[in-house]
Lab assay of single mutants.
Amino acid sequence: MTFKLIINGKTLKGETTTEAVDAATAEKVLKQYANDNGIDGEWTYDDATKTFTVTE
Rank of each mutant, 00 (worst) to 15 (best):
M1E: 11
T2S: 09
T2H: 10
F3K: 01
F3M: 02
K4T: 14
K4A: 06
K4L: 09
K4I: 13
L5S: 01
L5V: 04
L5R: 00
I6W: 04
I6Y: 06
I7E: 01
I7S: 03
N8E: 08
N8P: 03
N8Y: 12
N8D: 09
K10V: 13
T11I: 12
T11V: 12
L12I: 14
L12V: 13
G14F: 14
G14I: 15
G14Y: 15
G14A: 13
E15W: 14
E15P: 04
T16I: 15
T16Y: 15
T16A: 11
T17F: 14
T17N: 06
T17R: 08
T18M: 10
E19P: 05
A20D: 03
A20P: 02
A20S: 07
V21D: 11
V21I: 14
V21W: 12
D22F: 03
D22W: 03
A23F: 14
A23R: 13
A23W: 13
A24G: 08
A24F: 10
T25I: 08
T25W: 07
T25L: 08
A26E: 00
A26T: 00
A26S: 02
E27A: 10
E27R: 09
E27P: 00
E27M: 13
E27K: 09
K28G: 07
K28F: 09
V29P: 02
V29I: 15
L30H: 03
K31E: 03
K31N: 04
K31S: 04
Q32C: 06
Q32G: 07
Q32Y: 04
Q32H: 07
Q32P: 02
Y33L: 06
A34R: 01
A34L: 06
N35C: 12
N35W: 15
D36V: 09
D36L: 12
N37M: 15
N37G: 05
N37I: 15
G38V: 03
G38Y: 06
G38D: 07
I39K: 01
D40A: 13
D40S: 14
G41S: 01
G41N: 01
E42F: 11
E42G: 05
E42P: 05
W43I: 03
W43A: 00
W43F: 05
T44V: 09
Y45I: 01
Y45P: 00
Y45R: 01
Y45D: 00
D46R: 03
D46K: 03
D46I: 04
D46A: 04
D46C: 08
D47C: 06
A48D: 12
A48L: 12
A48H: 13
T49Y: 05
T49S: 09
T49H: 06
K50R: 15
K50S: 06
K50F: 10
T51L: 04
T51F: 02
T51A: 05
F52E: 00
F52M: 01
T53G: 03
T53E: 05
T53F: 08
V54I: 09
T55S: 08
T55G: 04
E56C: 08
E56F: 09
